[in-house]
Computed example of a mutant assay.
Amino acid sequence: MNKVKVGVVGLGRLGKVHAQNLRYKIPGAELTAACSIVPAELEYAKNELGVTDVYTDYKEMLAKADIDAVVIVTTSSEHCWQIEAALDAGKHVFSEKPLGVDVAQCKQAEAAVERHPELTFMLGFMRRYDKSYSYAKQKIEEGAIGTPYLVKATGIDPEAFVEGAIRFAKNSGGIFLDMAIHDIDLMRWFLGCEATEVYAMGATFKHPEFKEAGDDETGVAVYKFENGAMGMIHVGRTAPYGYHVETEIVGTEGSIRISAVPEKNQARLYNTNGVCAECVGSFPERFEEAYLIEVQEFVDCVLQGKAPGVSVYDGTKSTAIGYATTEAWRTGKAVKLN
């Protein structure tokens, strides 16, 4: 196999990012098919990507399209059955996060992956492939900050995209599964152990539609890990200035801060407002290179028969923590994890 023929399912904001990368930026991949239930997205595939083999039915694409692999960028609740269907059809699979919206779904995906050890499966925790985050991991492994014992993470989507978040709220799995899953994965990755207890709370001050959907616009969670380390997460959907993501890892001999200011670039504007730094506008912009690197790894793993750096089990563990966080948010009580 010289190239991996790929079908993408879901061509929303992030789906377009992956499709563009597959079509134009990854030499080992060939985007040959696309699937969406949204007619405008299929028109985008045909007109902007030159993909003429398009489908509204995912199972039909699996049965008929000339593809070796699928890239799944659909609603979170659809991921696991689509992963299973693709693997059972003999296709390699890359799926966006989260793996599933509950642990039972994740176990379904795990079983499918285990049935097909000959096929590559990779989950899209792209922050591990961001140069700043991978650098932080390297420095931690080198002992640059001693023993890490606290991870503090903030992730707030821009107010500019809040209407889309409101529409998605009923199917997102809740703010913690939807927005904190990357931070949960990074806490596990940086601390090198699993969470044992979580307490969470949420609030809605600006958009009551989130409450009406059974969700919140802002959430905070505190974690205890098996080695005594701690984690703190703040997620939200209403940053007025742009996309705000930052992480700090504190150790016995120092700390590492990533994106302490969510800046767009190194330029500074000096005017009557003072000294201003423009903020990055969205997650596809902030992690543009990471999205490319992770799918490049997926394609390389398919071509070379090697295992990706992120496994189905990472997805299950992070989902279990996210689900427990959601339970803690709903009940107002601390929840212990097995």
Rank of each mutant, 00 (worst) to 15 (best):
G202W: 00
G236A: 11
G202A: 05
G228P: 09
R188G: 01
V245W: 13
H207Y: 15
L191Y: 01
V261G: 08
A239K: 04
P240E: 11
P262F: 02
T252R: 11
N271S: 07
I184G: 01
I181Y: 05
G228H: 12
G251F: 02
L186F: 03
A239T: 09
I181Q: 10
F176M: 13
I233Y: 00
I258A: 06
A260N: 14
F210H: 05
E209S: 03
E209V: 00
I258V: 15
A200E: 04
R237N: 10
I233G: 00
I249G: 01
K211C: 04
G236R: 05
L191S: 02
G274Y: 04
I249H: 04
M179K: 11
G236H: 14
E209C: 01
A213I: 00
V245P: 00
D185N: 12
L177I: 12
N227Q: 10
D183I: 02
T238F: 06
Y199L: 06
T247S: 09
R257A: 15
K264D: 15
N265D: 15
H207N: 15
Q266I: 06
I175V: 13
V220H: 14
H234Q: 14
P240I: 04
T247Q: 11
L186P: 00
A195Q: 05
N265M: 04
Y223S: 00
E246K: 02
G192A: 08
D215N: 15
F225Q: 07
E217L: 08
V261K: 12
L269H: 14
N227R: 08
N227H: 07
I249S: 03
M179H: 14
A229L: 08
I181L: 09
A203I: 06
N265S: 11
T247G: 03
K224T: 14
